Simulated assay, not measured.
Amino acid sequence: MSVLAENLDWGVGRKTILHDVSISVAPGETLGLVGPNGSGKSSLLRLLAGLKRPRAGLVTINGKSVVQVPRKALSREVAFVQQSAATETSVSVLDVVRLGRTPHRSALSGWSAEDEAAVTEALTRVDMLGHRAQSWQTLSGGERQRVHIARALAQSPRVMFLDEPTNHLDIHHQIEILRMVRDLDLTSVIALHDLNLAAMFCDKIVVMRSGSVFASGTPAEVLTEELLREVFRVTAEVNCITPGAGPHIRFTP
């Protein structure tokens, strides 16, 4: 499914947070959102997922405006993984991931074999099947993040939006989660801080600065030494170690 944002404006009160933002994501493509803190990445993700309404502009998924599609119907197609979530309720990992099946069930429907298979597959993909009976309260930050992603996968979405999904994860699970998302048969938009991970796993990158799109293109086109100096205020060397692969960034003191 394609994702298209045209001339988005959004803010809180009199403060403008996003201005004239336009992006497009082709079906099956993985797009990375990068930029300094406060550049508008998280706000843009919420607009794309239909969780917020823009002041101006339009977001469409597969040609349909996200603000006009009923929430439950949209949730059968779109999953959103936020940076973190907390609950004081005593629930198990399995309970949390089962919530991902809510958009596919009616109030009177029983738990089906299809639901069970979707949950089991989701837990397996994030390497948490062995923790399914464990209490949410006893999980580490990284384990909770993997459970969030499993819940989203249990929705069986065709589009996934992920806000800093590698936060709290060790490097092994950072790579495994991003590889898994890239290899899924869906369209994904991922906000990331790690530019090298973005270069490794994203087909395209959009660089945000001060609520607007500063640059957009392939990792090799976008992640240049000049852009890193101007947007991120760092000095770095950018090299393509493997022909055909994304660039590698080596930050210098």
Rank of each mutant, 00 (worst) to 15 (best):
L192F: 06
I171R: 03
I171T: 06
Q155R: 01
V206P: 14
D194Q: 05
R151M: 06
T138M: 01
F201Y: 08
Q174C: 13
V159C: 13
Q174E: 10
V207A: 08
V222N: 05
T166W: 10
A152F: 01
S188G: 09
I171A: 09
H173C: 08
L178N: 02
R209I: 15
Q174V: 13
D185N: 14
T218F: 08
S156E: 15
H193W: 06
I175H: 02
L195M: 05
L169Y: 03
E143W: 04
I149N: 09
I190G: 04
E221Q: 15
M128A: 06
H193D: 09
T124Q: 03
T224F: 14
G141I: 15
L195K: 01
G141M: 10
K204Y: 04
K204Q: 13
M200S: 12
G211W: 14
L184S: 03
V126R: 00
E176D: 10
H193P: 11
M208R: 05
G211T: 07
L184V: 03
A191Y: 12
M208I: 14
V222Q: 06
E176R: 03
L162M: 02
P157M: 04
E226P: 03
L195W: 03
D170W: 13
G130P: 07
L197D: 02
E143V: 01
P165S: 10
D127S: 15
N167F: 05
F201E: 03
D163I: 01
F161P: 14
Q134M: 09
R209G: 10
H193S: 10
R179H: 13
T187R: 08
D203G: 08
L195H: 00
S156M: 13
T166A: 07
S216F: 14
L227I: 00
A199H: 04
C202Y: 02
D127L: 07
T218A: 11
G141T: 03
H148E: 11
M180Y: 01
L223G: 05
R229D: 11
V189Y: 04
E164H: 01
M208Q: 05
N196C: 09
A220M: 12
V206A: 10
V159R: 12
H168D: 15
V189A: 04
K204W: 08
L227K: 00
V126F: 07
D170V: 12
